[in-house]
Design a protein around this nucleic acid. Structure first.
Length: 285
DNA sequence: CCGCTGTCCTGCCAGC
DNA sequence: TGCTGGCAGGACAGCG
């Protein structure tokens, strides 16, 4: 499940591989994913040279020198991988390769967008209007930016009746946090995921801002979490799944646990907003 | 405006 | 062994 650290890792890999290369071919192998691909996608990006690659929330932004920016989202199961283009044998297609982009260079490179569950997305927009794009404009602030503070959270969560866990998943509040890192950050902050967002004290939110940053930075350093589908652009797995405290750990003791497992039943799994939350009911209040 | 539910989609795994 | 049903979930539409 690509969240901020996974998307950041992919962006770093894409930047290393693609900046300075020109697009010489685009193969669109189906009409679209979660939304249709732009009908003029090929026309708008062919001939463009990659000048920069950025991340905004869970979106990958590939800027071209022709004034266009490609917007990609990996959804649940999307993979972007690069490989050296081989002239001597025909291109092999994976079952869910939906988009293939060819780049200049010696050797030339291929970028594959593979997405079995098809929750991903590819759009293109003019770079000058990027901030106004309908997908990016409503996004909340970046959790790794200086603007992400306890003051900000306290103000925006004031009066909110929804749970703090669902508030963290709301991309209009904080951009880029998904299920894994919401669970992990709440655990380290000692806050129950069931607590009403508006009932979190300022002290709690100060802790939460700190633990969100720590968890995201640790996951980026580990190359992301490969729980199921996610891989880096070279096809390798991330390593953060080996250091999760609570996510997908129902019934196990949490880190440095001194609780009586027979009484507490270990890490709890509950469903919030249709998705799993994992937490320790002793350490999180 | 707010919060909740349904929807999209396929792979995987438990259970029979 | 092979089938089936449930689950995984990011983001948005639509509802009350």
């Amino acid at each position: 499940m690509p969240e901020l650290p996974e998307v950041e890792t992919v962006c770093i890999g894409l930047a290393q591989a693609l900046i300075g290369r020109g697009i010489i071919g685009v193969e669109v192998r189906r009409k679209g994913l979660r939304v249709p691909f732009p009908v003029d996608l090929t026309q708008r990006i062919t001939g463009g040279v990659v000048t920069a690659i950025h991340r905004r929330a869970k979106y990958i932004l590939i800027a071209l020198d022709n004034g266009q920016t490609i917007i990609l989202h990996l959804g649940m199961s999307g993979r972007l991988t690069t490989e050296v283009m081989c002239d001597s044998q025909p291109l092999q297609y994976g079952k869910h390769d939906h988009l293939i982009v060819q780049f200049t260079g010696s050797p030339a490179l291929l970028l594959r967008f593979n997405d079995p569950r098809r929750f991903g997305l590819c759009e293109v927009t003019s770079t000058s209007n990027l901030d106004q794009h309908k997908l990016l404009k409503p996004l909340g602030i970046e959790p790794l930016s200086d603007e992400f503070t306890a003051e900000y959270l306290h103000k925006i969560l004031k009066g909110k009746g929804t749970s703090i866990k669902l508030a963290l998943l709301d991309q209009h509040i904080v951009a880029g946090i998904g299920n894994i890192y919401a669970c992990e950050a709440l655990f380290y902050a000692g806050i129950s995921p069931l607590r009403h967002a508006g009932d979190c004290t300022y002290i709690m939110l100060e802790r939460l801002v700190t633990t969100i940053r720590q968890v995201l930075l640790a996951a980026i350093a580990a190359g992301g979490s490969s729980m199921r589908d996610y891989v880096r652009v070279d096809g390798s797995a991330g390593a953060f799944q080996d250091q999760v405290a609570v996510y997908d750990q129902a019934g196990k003791p949490c880190p440095s646990c001194t609780c009586d497992l027979a009484k507490t039943e270990g890490i709890q799994r509950v469903v919030q907003g249709g998705r799993s939350t994992f937490w320790c009911k002793i350490k999180q209040v």
